[in-house]
Simulated scan of single mutants.
Amino acid sequence: MPLALCCMSHSPLLDLTEQPAELTADVEAALGQARRFVRDFAPDVVVLFAPDHYNGFFYRLMPPFCIGLRATGVGDYGTADGPLDVPWDLAHELAESILAADIDVSVSMGMEVDHGAVQPLEKLFGRIDSVPVVPVFLNSVAAPLGPIRRVRLLGEAIGRHLADRPERVLLLGSGGLSHDPPVPTFATATADVSHRIVTGRPASTTERAARQEKVIEAGSGFAQGTVPLRPLNPEWDQEFLDLLESGDLAPLDGWSNTWIEEQGGGSAHEIRTWVAAHAAMAAGGGYESTYRYYRPIPEYIAGFAVTTAVPKGAATA
């Protein structure tokens, strides 16, 4: 079964703010490279590894991993709302296969996905329903988090299962590298925010607009040096990308969650989506990188990267 990989950062500020022309053109060129890669590969289905930011998953029940058997975009930060085209049989069989591999994974008949899942689909395919998608949620925000080794094992189980299928599958990972945006934590949230991230109470239009404005102001202030968010860490980001490019993911097992947060910030745990996608690619027969873009972008509050990879030997075949 043919596999290909594309991983990219996402940011709620990508389409909500006007940035210098050079920055916008640079990021668009990287996304354009990814679009051409995906178009040339022409996947039959996408397996999408994505986090959530308390828009679809909440503390009332927070699984470490979840497969969406049906899924809908919530429409946050200007991204599209509405249903994704989830192939039921493939998603259900994937969940069964992961469980049979001794990896605990939940399933959802009503998964709600936010910009972390929707934005890459829009950037690469134009619409969220233009290609069949199996969404794989990885908790990357809500402590406590399991060890990153478990993420690697999840990815490997997915890759082994996909290796036996006939479809052309794009493994799509969506997450920032080093970044520490104003995402609430249960330990520090106000009583009202704590109630929302536990119960999943839908944000009102006013609350959603206020949250959006807060993030826009944080990005602008961070770029100008007036908002004291944790600095981006390009050196750590590049080390992570080097490790993925090497194809040897074993050293990741020694990366503790505490160390990841110290190096990259509270939302750096989104690298889990990249790890799962690359582990799946490795288990499917190995891979080699074909494209790599990286830029620390304070305006987006993110170490921003785009990468692609193909099966080992395919780039020179």
Results as ranks from 00 to 15, higher is better:
residue 190 T to M: 00
residue 191 A to V: 08
residue 192 D to M: 02
residue 192 D to N: 08
residue 193 V to G: 00
residue 196 R to C: 01
residue 197 I to C: 07
residue 203 A to K: 13
residue 206 T to R: 15
residue 207 E to D: 12
residue 208 R to L: 12
residue 209 A to L: 12
residue 210 A to Q: 15
residue 215 V to Y: 08
residue 218 A to C: 08
residue 219 G to E: 07
residue 219 G to V: 03
residue 219 G to W: 01
residue 219 G to H: 08
residue 221 G to I: 02
residue 222 F to E: 06
residue 223 A to C: 07
residue 224 Q to W: 01
residue 228 P to T: 14
residue 233 N to W: 02
residue 233 N to K: 11
residue 234 P to T: 04
residue 235 E to C: 04
residue 235 E to Y: 02
residue 237 D to L: 05
residue 238 Q to G: 00
residue 239 E to I: 01
residue 239 E to G: 13
residue 241 L to P: 02
residue 244 L to E: 02
residue 244 L to F: 02
residue 245 E to T: 14
residue 245 E to S: 15
residue 247 G to Y: 05
residue 248 D to Q: 10
residue 251 P to N: 05
residue 251 P to W: 10
residue 258 T to R: 15
residue 264 G to C: 07
residue 266 G to L: 12
residue 268 A to L: 05
residue 268 A to W: 00
residue 268 A to P: 01
residue 269 H to L: 09
residue 272 R to G: 06
residue 277 A to R: 03
residue 277 A to T: 12
residue 278 H to I: 02
residue 279 A to E: 04
residue 279 A to P: 09
residue 280 A to S: 11
residue 283 A to D: 04
residue 285 G to S: 07
residue 286 G to H: 11
residue 286 G to P: 09
residue 287 Y to G: 08
residue 287 Y to A: 09
residue 288 E to N: 12
residue 289 S to I: 14
residue 290 T to V: 14
residue 291 Y to Q: 07
residue 291 Y to V: 07
residue 292 R to L: 14
residue 292 R to E: 14
residue 298 P to I: 04
residue 299 E to I: 00
residue 300 Y to T: 01
residue 301 I to E: 02
residue 301 I to A: 08
residue 302 A to F: 01
residue 306 V to F: 04
residue 307 T to K: 08
residue 307 T to S: 14
residue 308 T to S: 13
residue 309 A to R: 10
residue 314 A to I: 05
